[in-house]
Structure formats: C-alpha cells, structure tokens
Amino acid sequence: MLAVETVDLIKDYLEGFWRKRPKRALEGLNLCVERGEIFGLLGPNGAGKTTTLKILLRLIFPSSGTARILGKDIADVSVHHRIGYLPEQPYFYDHLTAEEFLNFAGELFGLPASERRRRVASLLERVGLEESRNVPLRKFSKGMVQRVGIAQALINDPELVFLDEPMSGLDPLGRREVRDLILELRATGKTVFFSTHILSDAESLCDRVAILHRGRLQGCGELRKILALGVSSTEIILEDPRPTVLKELDRYAPSAVKTGERVRLEIPSESDVPKVLEIALRHHTKLVSVNPVKKSLEDYFMAQIGKKPATSNEKEEVRTREGRV
C-alpha cells in the first residue's frame, strides 16, 4: 500500500472579482510516495507544492482527479488519525502556552489524559521547548512557533507526516535538529512527505524527490539515481606536475587550472581517467586527489524547471526508472 497516491490531480483557482476566470495551479499531478521513505516535493515559489499538500489534507478541493492517503480516499477524514501536518508559516492560538496547545491537539485525536501528558512532555523535550512549556505562544519567536508546529504534527505518533517548508524560520541549529528529527522518523518506519524550495535540505534528507514547476510535474525519482546520473566529469589534482606531463595530458583534460603548486584537471570522459592516472604515475607526479564531479540536485532542478535545458536522455532515464510519472 502506498503512503500517498495522486492520479491526474488538477486544481483550478477562480480569480477575478466580477468575471471569475480559472487559473490552473496544478496540472494533472501523478505522484506515488512509498511507505517508509522521505519524499521531497520541490519547486520554486508558486510551483504548486502547498496546493498539493492542501488538497491532500482537504483544506482545498481538487478540480478533478483523485488522491489517496494510506490507501484511503482523501475525502475520508478518519485517515487524519494516522497523519500529522505542519502548515507553512504556522500560527497557533497565541493565548495558549505550548503545553496547552499540544494538549489541545492531543485531545482532538482523543488521546487519553495520561498518554497526552507523556507525549506532550516528550515532544516538548524533543523540539527543545521544555523550558518554555508555560510561555504563551504569542511570546514565541518564529523558530519556536515552528518547533511547536512540528511537535503538534507528531502528537498522535503518525504513520505519515506532511511538512510544508519545515525548515522555514529556523536558525542553523534548528535546521540541523529538524533534519535529525526527520531522519529519526524514517528510522522508526514513518513516511515523511515534505515540501521545500531549499534544495540542500532535500539533498541531505530525501530518498525520492519530485519537482514541480508552474503546477506541472517536471521530474520524479530516487535522489541517488538523479545524482548518479549527473556525474559530469572527474576532477584530478596533481602536485607540481612538469610541463611535459601537462602537455601529454592536454588531449584528455581540456581544462587545467594551476593554483600554487597544484594543478586541477577536469576530465570530461570517465574512460580517459585511467590513462591520465597512468601518465601521471609514469612521470612520478604526486597525485593529490581523484573525485567524480557530480551534478548537484540544484543542477538537476534548474534543468527540470527549464532554466538550463537538460538533455532529453537524462529526463527520459529518470522517468523510465521511476515507472509511471
């Protein structure tokens, strides 16, 4: 059973005061999120990430198409017992303290008082708000509210957690803690579905990512495959090579940059790497490092959203590997 599945999901917003005109926010979205994985929904602002999450949580309704969460149609609110949700830029009842709010959230799930007390205490500790448990939320900083938001999303020990821009408003330490928390959730078998436009977060966390741009799915795949696809060249650094060596290497390494005593060579073809190494060793040149230069998620992202054209082979390969996307 999939954690999340959307089929041909379309969302049109009606805009205009007198003459309402539909504006397409989501264009036939097909997504499959496996259970137990960290899935990242990426895209620039206005791409349709929050729209997708809101449809899944029934905060807005799809114009057409269907979606299922944990095997149940999204119209079935009972599935909300098994999910958690952190909204983008959350705001909660500011007259309540963090402890009161989490208790309220637990009550909505029908948790017994003893279990509520235990979970509230444990979550406050987990998100680092133990000291501020009795402070009204109106006195909280943005980062602290975000932490409360994460705690309330986990109050019911959900199987699937939706996090909309979870790192937003957090300082570097907070981001690190949330990253650890997300990894910890996966380790305990939970599924995490999060949206972000911060690619480094996705790169360090996700098992799979989908890229949305202007409401359209531009690509979807396993992160390691996407990044492996992008090995574009190999970087070899040599220590003080003689000019004759460099001359010999010229045909394999069109780009050679000298920095101090070291020379950095970029070898475009992977098959030329052994030849370069053989020449260097034959001339007793000291080898400093050999590194594959991988395409970053950012490169892939930019290619997918059309800022820099991706080769059709790359796109096709990811699509074929992922099946129906």
Partner: peptide, 14 residues
C-alpha cells in the same frame, strides 16, 4: 485569517 484552522482541520475534525 490567522491560518489556525489549517492545523485543526488536518486533524480528525470534521
């Protein structure tokens, strides 16, 4: 307006 409703309706609240 304050978006407090998002986190409420995402819970099993009809």
């Amino acid at each position: 307006d304050r978006r407090t409703i998002y986190s409420i309706l995402a819970k099993p609240v009809r």
